[in-house]
Amino acid sequence: MTVMVLVVDDEPDVEALFRQQFRRDLRAQRFVMDFANSAADALARIADNLGQSLILILSDINMPGMTGLEMLPKVKQIRPEVPVIMITAYGDADTKRKALAGGATGLLTKPIDFALLREEIDARLM
């Protein structure tokens, strides 16, 4: 079964950055990465992929329309078992508190520490 990591971010260069950082894993087919450019798009993809093994959702907080924090309880309603890590440029204590209170597993600040993120993904692949 294919395992998937979903990345939700409205920045157009995020997909290229993640594909570059995880190119060996993707080439080795350890997992696949899917990308959504809005919270609404992410919710539709999550609902459509109920049979797929979604192991992690990474979501930016600040996006136009629905924010990542607004999306979080909706994700947890559809797929409560899937961990969600929020990503933000502003890693203040209040943002972290809101993310964790909303059900996030963790919070990463930009620029993303890809070594730490790789450890998170590897732990879920075991």
Results as ranks from 00 to 15, higher is better:
L17F: 09
L17E: 15
F18S: 07
F18N: 08
R19Y: 07
R19H: 08
R19L: 12
Q20M: 13
Q21Y: 04
R23N: 08
R23W: 09
D25I: 06
L26I: 15
A28I: 03
Q29N: 09
V32C: 07
V32I: 12
M33N: 10
M33R: 01
M33F: 13
F35L: 10
F35C: 13
N37M: 14
N37A: 14
S38F: 08
A39E: 03
A39D: 02
A40C: 08
A42R: 09
A44H: 11
A44I: 08
A44F: 06
N49L: 00
N49I: 00
L50E: 01
G51T: 00
Q52R: 13
Q52F: 01
S53I: 01
S53H: 10
S53E: 14
S53L: 05
I55N: 06
I55P: 14
I55M: 13
I55D: 11
L56R: 06
L56P: 13
I57D: 14
L58A: 07
S59F: 05
S59A: 15
S59G: 13
S59R: 07
I61H: 02
I61D: 04
N62A: 05
M63D: 08
M63F: 10
P64E: 09
M66L: 14
M66A: 10
T67F: 07
G68V: 03
E70N: 05
E70P: 02
E70M: 08
V75H: 04
K76S: 07
Q77G: 03
Q77F: 07
Q77M: 04
Q77Y: 02
R79P: 00
R79Y: 00
E81W: 02
E81F: 03
V82G: 01
P83T: 09
V84F: 02
V84C: 07
I85N: 01
I85H: 03
I85E: 01
M86K: 02
I87T: 02
T88S: 09
T88Y: 01
Y90H: 11
Y90P: 01
G91T: 04
D92P: 05
D92L: 03
D92S: 10
A93G: 02
T95I: 14
T95F: 04
K96Q: 14
R97N: 11
R97E: 12
R97P: 10
K98L: 15
K98D: 15
A99T: 04
L100G: 15
G102W: 06
G103K: 09
G103N: 06
G103M: 04
G106K: 12
L107Y: 07
L107F: 12
L107I: 13
T109A: 10
T109Q: 12
K110D: 03
K110A: 05
K110R: 15
K110C: 11
P111W: 12
P111R: 10
I112M: 06
I112P: 14
D113L: 10
D113F: 12
D113E: 04
D113Q: 08
D113P: 15
F114E: 06
A115C: 12
A115P: 14
R118K: 14
R118F: 06
E120M: 09
I121T: 03
